[in-house]
């Protein structure tokens, strides 16, 4: 289980980095910025569900 949590967390962190990058690069484009903000909110839920355990 620990391995699985670590593996999932790794993917979540990669996603987060990419979503943050997307948000930054698309900061002048409403369609990109707002959608990437929503994406980050969803990624935060994944952090609450998985990453918080990985970081215990």
């Amino acid at each position: 289980m620990e391995q699985k949590i670590k593996a999932l967390n790794k993917i979540i962190q990669t996603l987060k980095e990419q979503a943050e990058l997307l948000s930054k690069e698309g900061a002048d484009l409403p369609c990109v910025f707002r959608n990437s903000q929503r994406l980050l909110a969803t990624i935060k839920m994944l952090e609450l569900e998985v990453s918080d355990i990985a970081n215990l």
Binding site: M1, I5, E49, V50, D52, I53, N55, L56
Partner: peptide
């Protein structure tokens, strides 16, 4: 919904709660 959290030991849940 989340088997990791919903079946976590009370000891670990307490650690998680304190950190959060």
């Amino acid at each position: 919904w989340n088997p990791f959290l919903e079946t976590m030991s009370q000891r670990d849940l307490k650690r998680l709660q304190l950190a959060k």
